[in-house]
Design a protein around this nucleic acid. Sequence first.
DNA 1: TCTCCACTCT
DNA 2: CATGAGAGTGGAGAT
Length: 852
Amino acid sequence: MHTNALYGFHNMLEVIVDKEKPTHALVAFDAGKTTFRHKYFEEYKGGRSKMPSEFAEQIPYMKDLLKGFGLKSYELPDYEADDIIGTLAREAEEKGFEVVVLTGDRDLTQLASDHVRIDITKKGVKDLKEHTKDSIQEEMGITPEQIVDMKGLAGDASDNIPGVTKIGEKTALKLLHEYGSVENLYEHIDEMKKSKRKEYLIDEKETAFLSKKLATIDRDAPVEISLDELDYDGQDMEALISFYKEMDFNSHLSKLDTTDYMEELAEELTEIDSTFVEEIDASMFKDGMALYTEMLDENYHHSEIICVAWGNKDNVYVADPKTVFQSDAFKNWIEDEAMQKVVYDAKQTYVALNRNELTIKGISFDIMLASYLLTAEDSSSGDLVDVAVKHDYQGVSPDEMVYGKGKKISRPEDESRMHDHLARKVLAINTLSETLDKELKENEQEDLLKKMELPLAMVLAEMEIQGITADAERLEKMKGEFQETLDRVEKQIFKEAGEEFNINSPKQLSVILFEKMGYPVIKKTKTGYSTAQDVLEKLRDQAPIVEYILEYRQISKIQSTYIEGLLKVIDPETSKIHTRYLQTVARTGRLSSVDPNLQNIPIRLEEGRKIRQAFVPREKGWKIYASDYSQIELRILAHISEDEHFIKAFNDDEDIHTTTAMRVFDVDDASKITPNMRRDAKAVNFGIVYGISDYGLSQNLNITRKEAKEYIDTYFERFPGVKTFIDEIIRQAKEQGYVETLFHRRRYLPDINSRNFNLRSFAERTAMNTPIQGSAADILKMAMIEMNKRIKEEKMQATMLLQVHDELIFEVPEAEIEKLEKLVEEVMENTVQLSVPLKVDSSYGDSWYDAK
DNA sequence: TCTCCACTCT
DNA sequence: CATGAGAGTGGAGAT
């Protein structure tokens, strides 16, 4: 369910209640589609499109939200919310109240008076503009009362109020300055000079009066709620908490004074049995038990285990790490492959135990991975409770409740709270492993977990622990050099600008560029002028300063993120960097890499590429060895779409972009394809994979939209299989609500049938891209598992270090290079058989930079 | 501490 | 009306 409108409405209420501190308050709703105004004019508010279902579905919950805020709401048949507001505002003002009307509707400005102020949302919901009688007079040049006269003459397109032909706001304003009101205008209409306008006014006199009447808010509606009933006395905590919980408004939940809430939560959790043990014996371990190792920091490479729990539905044991890691029984259990263990986050568990000299074997299920396979929703917070709640298991609390959050994260003073928390996690893992296993089987995704993600987790754990060696001295040296460049470029920018400012601040930069120096604004962002790269590039010819800015930005990114950033994460003892691969964030099945991200080390531009010189083998004389799949996504597209031309091109080992150019530009000889034609064809190929529009392609290739459309049309004509694939996959997505990769990885697309064009288009592009990108991810994952296995079988010293979406990076002794070359190609090219061959390109050198 | 922008990668 | 997929990080500025 969408909750965006509720969220926005909530924030608005929060701001207004806090700011205005009302003594009385009411929220007015429209009662229905028709009102008394429709009796005069059937088409009133006609032509409005239906309320989007995303919004409509939220309305029933508004009442719950209001209850939580302790606010009354009211609606009146045949009247609009405006009339209720108008009537009560009048009454309140008469009784001496100061009234504030909060609305998103400009029509209400007509209610402004000496003691009635109208606040209208400007942007978002928190940004309000106050309208008083005087400010309206000043801005519009008329009094609030005259607003309805204005609409009588000029009409209002949004409410379908007709007004008088040929009279818009400007003319209406002029007429009102002269005559004051619609009534007075018609009293003096004879004095008006003969003109077309006069004829219209005379002909449409009735319409003018009708329009005014329609626009006028009824300030005498038969409202049956009295002001006394509207006194406001604060939030209803119970109602608010249950609303927050239902809507998953966790940030609001945590903002509340949580002491009461936590007590309530604790009461909700049924008592569970667990044993805190100080001595461990073999009888405490059974096949199929769940295991959980608690750490306070998400980076398990550094964070210490603070508590360990294990067990099944019969017995749950909790123990201190000290106890656990001294126990032989525990070690025997962990390292016994035949004793199956169920966990939450297998990779984290592996690494954490590994740091305590234990190698866990026999992990048979991981509820985090299973949950990710079932829904591919973000569970990156790392908290088990998210997975539990998603699968309707209510028996655990969020970590935040036990340990606190942010800087204040720590062991609870009452250790038994932590023990209870962990015991609950163990029970959750036990229970959920059964339900999720069943669901995986129903989706034919069991292999995906047990043969792909789970074995991969073990491989990734080894890679992360291994780490890649980084040359800190090299980085330090580069840091000095880049700093010189930065200083030099900075001086030039200040000289051009005529003043000093923070170049890193887009806000300050846009003031310099677009206000002080007066260059044309090409694009705007949500918050101001865009100074993005593509914008600056368009200013290049007229603005010498942008050349320097682009250079400054490029270098300062290298400096802050890659040099200083990497230096911070090199282990000073071992000179190694240990990234963490996140296995459950990318919705396509790709991995991501954090702390640091080693999947986006610069390569495109030479200055940045030099960073790769700092990534070196762990032993002298060894090499960094890199293998990447050539065109894997297009090959998968060829395979899935079964497009005969695509398949033939790959089977004949043709240059795919050249072949595409030949077909799209209708050239029969490859030698007649110019580099530009090939470049364009390449852009089209990529565009197709991502579901580009003609607009996007035109921007990309700097051609007209029409030309881009022709490219795309011709492409589909010449590669009919691709067109069929796209149509078919979208149809399938609409029908079943999800798409799948070649290996049954699923992605649900709830927006695929949305009436919102943008949401629907986005879902359609996802429908075509996910099977391609996701299948590529699957293939590399399988290749990694196989590579890891083969390297061990062959007892090689070569080590797999990194994965970058379609490539694998190894470090290898010189003597093993040839063997590795053969092995990598064999494994990567043959782990999966498609209807086109998979091809791998490899290279090696003394550093990652040199492996090109 | 969060959000936005700009930059990096496949 | 907006306009090609999937990611993460750092700095500025707002909250």
